[in-house]
Measured scan of single mutants.
Amino acid sequence: GKELVLALYDYQEKSPREVTMKKGDILTLLNSTNKDWWKVEVNDRQGFVPAAYVKKL
């Protein structure tokens, strides 16, 4: 099944490779191999968020 993460904080994208999320959002985790930036999918968009801003559910 898909792995989900919870947004712990708001995050505003700073580049086209990133995505914006709001605290409390549930996101689909696509890739967590990089310890600093995790790739997630939110609202049919894929991009990176800081790993410290999310936690695995």
Rank of each mutant, 00 (worst) to 15 (best):
S15Q: 08
L27F: 07
I26S: 03
G47D: 00
V5P: 00
V42T: 15
N43L: 13
V5S: 03
K22E: 06
S32L: 05
M21R: 00
T28S: 09
D36I: 15
V42S: 15
G24L: 03
T28Y: 12
V54N: 00
N31A: 10
K55L: 13
Y53Q: 05
Q46T: 12
L27R: 01
L8T: 04
S32V: 07
E13M: 13
K23W: 03
W38N: 01
K23S: 07
V5F: 07
G24F: 05
K22P: 00
Y9Q: 13
G24M: 03
G47C: 03
P16S: 12
K22H: 10
R45A: 06
K35E: 11
D44S: 12
N31H: 07
V54Q: 00
A7P: 00
F48P: 00
L6V: 15
W38P: 01
E13N: 07
L8K: 05
M21Y: 02
Q46M: 10
K56P: 10
G1S: 14
Y11V: 02
W37G: 01
E13K: 14
E13Q: 14
L29R: 01
T33K: 11
K14L: 09
D44R: 10
D44T: 11
V19N: 04
K35I: 10
L27C: 10
T20R: 06
K55N: 06
R17L: 13
P16L: 09
P16N: 10
V40W: 00
L30T: 05
N43C: 13
A7I: 03
E18T: 09
G47P: 00
V49P: 00
W37K: 03
K2L: 13
E41W: 08
W37V: 03
W37T: 02
Y11S: 00
K23N: 04
S15I: 05
M21K: 00
E3K: 09
D36K: 14
E41R: 10
V40T: 00
V54E: 01
W37D: 01
P50E: 02
W38D: 00
A7M: 02
A7F: 01
A7N: 00
K35F: 09
T33I: 09
L4S: 07
R45T: 07
A52S: 14
A52N: 13
V42H: 15
E3T: 14
F48G: 01
Y11T: 01
P50L: 04
T20D: 04
V5A: 12
D10P: 06
K39N: 07
N43M: 13
Y53I: 07
Q46S: 12
K39Q: 13
N34S: 10
W37R: 03
G47Y: 05
D44V: 06
M21Q: 01
F48C: 12
R17K: 11
T33Y: 10
L8M: 09
R17I: 12
L4P: 04
K14G: 08
L57S: 04
K2R: 14
D36P: 03
V5Q: 00
F48H: 05
F48K: 03
W38I: 05
L30C: 07
V5E: 01
Q46Y: 07
T20Q: 05
V49E: 01
K39T: 08
R45G: 05
E18A: 07
D10I: 02
E41H: 07
A52D: 09
P50I: 02
F48Y: 15
E3R: 13
D25H: 06
S32K: 07
V19P: 01
K56E: 06
R17S: 13
L57C: 13
V40F: 00
K39R: 11
E3M: 14
K35A: 13
L4K: 12
S15C: 10
D44G: 15
Y53G: 06
F48D: 04
Y11M: 01
A52E: 10
T20W: 05
V19G: 02
K35D: 10
K2C: 14
G24H: 05
L27M: 14
V49S: 01
P16W: 10
Y9L: 10
S32P: 06
K23M: 08
L6S: 05
N31P: 03
L27V: 07
G24Q: 02
S15M: 07
R45P: 01
K23P: 03
N31W: 08
L57Y: 09
R17T: 11
T28D: 05
E41K: 09
G47V: 05
K22W: 10
S32W: 11
K23H: 06
K23F: 05
V19F: 14
E13Y: 05
R17W: 15
E41G: 08
R17G: 14
V42W: 08
N31E: 14
K55M: 15
V54I: 08
F48L: 09
E41Y: 07
N34E: 11
T28I: 15
Q12S: 11
D36C: 14
N34K: 07
P50S: 02
T28C: 09
L29K: 02
K22Y: 12
E18Q: 11
D25K: 04
K55H: 11
D25L: 05
K14A: 12
V42L: 15
L6M: 15
Y9T: 07
S15H: 13
T33G: 10
S15K: 07
K14Q: 14
N31V: 08
D44L: 10
E13A: 15
A51I: 03
E18M: 05
Y9S: 08
V19C: 09
A51N: 02
E13I: 06
L8C: 08
N31C: 13
D36F: 15
K39P: 01
L6Q: 10
Y9W: 11
L6R: 09
I26F: 06
M21D: 00
Y11E: 00
M21G: 00
A52F: 09
S32D: 15
K22G: 05
E3H: 12
V49L: 03
D44K: 11
K56F: 11
T28F: 12
R17F: 14
T20I: 03
D44F: 10
R17V: 11
K55S: 10
E13R: 13
Y53R: 06
D44A: 10
R45C: 06
D36L: 14
G1H: 14
K23Y: 05
A52Q: 11
A52I: 11
W38L: 04
S15F: 06
E18F: 07
M21I: 14
K56L: 14
